[in-house]
């Protein structure tokens, strides 16, 4: 084992290399590594957050859907009720109209009949008078005997 200046040379090279490494090699590389680690950690945290958000949104959507279904059912229910009511009302109205029209018809028929009866009576009176005139072969003073004729008409 001979120890000589090689040792000193190696020592100097060692010092120079370590200083170079400390100044120009280590900081940029470890800096890049640590920066990337931070970025990855952020990314993972963000994806975690996003997954949680998604879950929340899905839950919200589900509950909203349920609510909407309930609402829709209640609307349909109300509509059905409303429809039934409208039909009922319409039926009631139609019935009333029918009754009214029927009543009007009946009334008209009544008045028409009365009028016809009246007319008939008058004509019968005239015919009776004319018949009587012919039977009596003489003129009867219509005016003088109108009270008798009226009585006759009323008896018809």
């Amino acid at each position: 084992m001979d120890i000589n200046m090689t040792l000193i040379g190696q020592l100097i090279a060692f010092v120079v290399f370590v200083i170079f490494c400390m100044k120009y090699v280590w900081p940029p590389i470890i800096g890049a590594i640590e920066e990337r680690q931070a970025t990855i950690a952020d990314g993972l945290a963000a994806s975690d957050r996003a997954a949680k958000d998604l879950e929340l949104a899905q839950e919200k959507a589900k509950s909203q859907l349920k609510e909407a279904k309930v609402q829709a059912a209640s609307i349909v229910d109300a509509a059905k009720k409303h429809e039934a009511k409208i039909v009922e009302e319409a039926a009631g109205k139609a019935q009333a109209e029918k009754d009214r029209i029927l009543a009007a018809g009946h009334a008209e028929i009544e008045t028409e009949r009365n009028r016809a009866k009246e007319e008939l009576r008058a004509q019968v009176a005239v015919l009776a008078v004319a018949g009587a005139e012919k039977i009596l072969e003489r003129s009867i003073d219509a005016a003088a005997h109108s009270d008798i004729l009226d009585k006759l008409v009323a008896e018809l």
């Binding site: 001979d2 120890i3 000589n4 200046m5 090689t6 040379g9 190696q10 090279a13 290399f17 170079f20 490494c21 120009y24 090699v25 280590w26 900081p27 940029p28 590389i29």
Partner: peptide, 28 residues
């Protein structure tokens, strides 16, 4: 004597040190 230098040991040593620093510096 003591002033002797091993050219092969020291030469390879410095050469390989420079290889290391060159590669790592180029990446840095």
């Amino acid at each position: 004597g003591f002033m002797a230098v091993h050219l092969d040991s020291l030469g390879w040593s410095i050469f390989l040190g420079l290889v290391f620093l060159t590669i790592f510096r180029s990446v840095a």
